[in-house]
Simulated scan of single mutants.
Amino acid sequence: MRLLCWRCGGGVCPFGMSLEKIIETKKLYPVTILRSCDRETFERLFLADVILTKDVLLQEIEKLKRRTQLKEEKLKKLIFEARQLFAFERSEKN
């Protein structure tokens, strides 16, 4: 069993990585980080096994529409926000 902490507040994390750092390093951002992901949207995404922002980007919009029963406008907004998140990540590295 491994112990994970959210953030290492000045101390040393067990095994050298906090949960926060793992999420950032592997870019495993949950869809709840997206501004337009309200509770109903999250529930529909969750039921369709769309949990991470990259899951939103990896599927075609028509497939997402069928699986989530969300309106195309809502999905386009989620996709736009997810793209912005990853574009921001890339610009931060440069």
Rank of each mutant, 00 (worst) to 15 (best):
R44W: 07
K63I: 11
R66M: 14
R67H: 13
L85S: 03
L52A: 05
Q84S: 09
C37I: 02
R67V: 07
E62M: 09
R66L: 14
I61K: 06
N94R: 13
E60K: 15
M17P: 01
E60V: 11
T25W: 02
R90C: 04
F15L: 13
K26G: 06
I61D: 05
E81P: 01
V50D: 00
S36P: 03
E89L: 08
P14E: 12
L75C: 02
S18Q: 09
M1K: 15
C8V: 08
E92M: 14
R83V: 00
R7I: 04
E89W: 12
D49L: 06
K76A: 04
E62P: 00
V12F: 09
I33P: 02
Q69G: 13
R35Q: 11
I22W: 04
S91C: 08
P14T: 10
L57H: 05
K77Y: 02
V12K: 13
F86R: 00
P14N: 14
E81L: 03
L78R: 00
K76C: 09
G10V: 10
E20C: 04
R35H: 09
L3M: 12
L19V: 03
K54T: 12
L47A: 15
E73M: 08
S18D: 08
Q69K: 15
L57W: 05
L75D: 01
K21S: 09
G11M: 12
Q69D: 14
L58K: 14
R35M: 06
A82D: 01
S36W: 05
F46L: 04
N94Y: 10
T25L: 10
G9W: 08
L28R: 04
T68Y: 06
L34M: 10
R83H: 02
A82W: 00
G16D: 09
I22N: 03
Q59M: 11
K21N: 08
L34D: 01
E20Y: 03
K21R: 15
K26I: 06
K65N: 09
F86E: 00
K26D: 12
V12I: 09
V56F: 01
K63T: 13
F15D: 15
R44V: 01
F88M: 07
S91W: 06
R7S: 10
L4F: 14
L34V: 05
I61G: 02
R67Y: 06
F42R: 08
S18T: 14
A82E: 01
I22S: 02
E72D: 12
Q69M: 11
E40Q: 13
L52G: 01
L52H: 04
E20I: 00
L75W: 02
T68L: 08
S91L: 12
C37V: 04
E81Q: 11
E20V: 00
M17Y: 06
G9F: 10
I79E: 04
K54Y: 13
C37K: 01
K27G: 10
P30S: 07
L28T: 00
K63F: 07
C37L: 03
E24Y: 12
Q59S: 12
D55G: 03
R67K: 15
G11A: 11
C13I: 03
K74W: 07
L57R: 08
L85H: 03
D49F: 07
M17K: 08
E73H: 09
K54E: 12
E24L: 14
V56T: 04
R90N: 14
T25I: 05
M17A: 10
V50I: 15
F15I: 06
